[in-house]
Design a protein around this nucleic acid. Structure first.
Length: 362
RNA sequence: GUGGAAUUGGCGAAACGGUUAACGCAUCGGAUUGUGAUUCCGACAUCAUGGGUUCGACUCCCAUAUUCCACC
């Protein structure tokens, strides 16, 4: 049984995912390590804060260093020195973020490498093959993540293209051990979301992601879309909300039944001076911290909070020391991971609603 | 002492006889949602002082102050 629901409270549930490189307790947050590493951190850091799975990116890794190098190293886990599970994103999001370099057709996508400008083609099948060769525990099918738009026709057309790609991806696996997740699309349109769920459920994937969110829609629209998908998707399969989000987004989504998250926010914001704390967001660049003896988050037990004052972190930022990026990334990830850990505990105790109400400061 | 040059925001540094004086750094804020991020976006000066020329001067002239260079 690759996924087991062990407790639930309302729509929220606690589960366990059994993967080739270990187990993952859900709801979980997956730190983003696009290039095979979480920016500024090392695997030992992730172990220290309890990360059970990391995300990496097929698009980026296939361009550089390339499949040959990763195979030569003995696969992605060995190459990166990360022995726990890895989920690889397909590169579908890059069709969105690097849209100006991409040309999508029915068979896949042709793009100019943002690194050296060479022409590269990706198809649903080659993306499956790449991820299988990487040895990722969970691989995502190639999808198109369309920009936020009120034009339903465009969203529907894109969604059906993603469906065809998902169908191809499903049929061309060579290693049945690896878990393959499909990506539900359909934008903010409930009927399209349902259609997408239905189509993909029929293909019987190991898990389902909710994609095409946080591309410009409102929070309410994102929540509504998530809710529609959670109602439709099979309760026996893990649900992964891609690219989300703020601490509040996570709590609200767990309440709807989401099991997995990834987001660059804790690491990117950390690098740029924002810390997530039990008291809300804090910008360490602000001059008010110049002489503060407080820990970043007085309620946190991470290395950063146990060791340094806000004053010192502020000083490091002003002085342009790269260490501060690491210290804030470490703290923010610790905060996210602990938030989900606490969610799991609350769900198991049947007190998730109470837990939500005590975390409104996010 | 003589001759020459310079003086623009906290610092460095543009510009032009004509409405709101580039840009960098620093400072103060903000953003960031499947990472093209050590990124991005805001805010922040009336041009050494005093006089004059001009419809209009940071831009031209005179004086003063300060600084620098060369020569004695």
């Amino acid at each position: 049984m690759p996924f087991q629901v062990v407790a639930s409270d309302g729509a929220a549930r606690v589960g366990r995912l059994t993967l080739a490189h270990g187990k993952v307790d859900t709801p979980c947050f997956m730190p983003v390590g696009t290039q095979g590493i979480v920016k500024t951190l090392v695997p030992a850091d992730l172990h220290a804060i309890g990360a059970q799975i990391m995300l990496a990116n097929t698009y980026h890794l296939s361009l550089r260093p390339g499949l040959a190098t990763i195979k030569h190293a003995g696969g992605l886990h060995r190459f990166c020195r990360w022995s726990k599970p890895i989920l690889t994103d397909s590169g579908g999001f890059q069709l969105y973020s690097l849209a100006s370099l991409c040309k999508v057709n029915d068979d896949g996508v042709v793009f100019r490498s943002h690194i050296d400008g060479r022409k590269v083609a990706l198809t649903p099948a080659t993306v499956v093959q790449l991820q299988e060769e990487f040895g990722s525990d969970i691989h995502m099918v190639l999808d198109e993540c369309p920009p936020y738009s009120h034009d339903k026709q465009i969203i529907a057309k894109s969604m059906r293209l993603s469906h065809r790609w998902a169908q191809i991806a499903r049929s061309c696996r060579s290693n049945q051990q690896l878990k393959q997740f499909a990506v539900v699309q359909g934008g903010v349109f409930a009927d399209l979301r349902r259609e997408s769920c239905d189509y993909l459920i029929d293909l019987d994937f190991e898990g389902y992601a909710i994609g095409g969110v946080s591309v410009g829609e409102t929070r309410a629209e994102m929540r509504a879309a998530t809710a529609v998908c959670c109602e439709k998707l099979p309760p026996t399969k893990p649900r992964y909300l891609m690219g989300v989000g703020t601490p509040l987004d996570l709590l609200e989504s767990v309440a709807l039944g989401v099991d997995m998250f990834d987001c660059v926010m804790p690491t990117r914001n950390g690098r740029n001076g924002t810390a997530f704390t039990s008291e809300g967001r804090l910008n360490i660049k602000n001059s008010g911290h110049r002489q503060s003896d407080l820990a970043l988050d007085p309620n946190c037990v991470c290395y950063t909070c146990k060791t340094y004052s806000r004053a010192f972190l502020h000083h490091l930022y002003k002085a342009g020391e790269v260490s501060v990026m690491r210290l804030l990334s470490l703290h923010n990830l610790c905060f996210y991971l602990r938030l989900l850990h606490d969610c799991r505990q609350a769900i198991e105790a049947g007190k998730f609603q109470e837990f939500l109400h005590t975390h409104t400061s996010f």
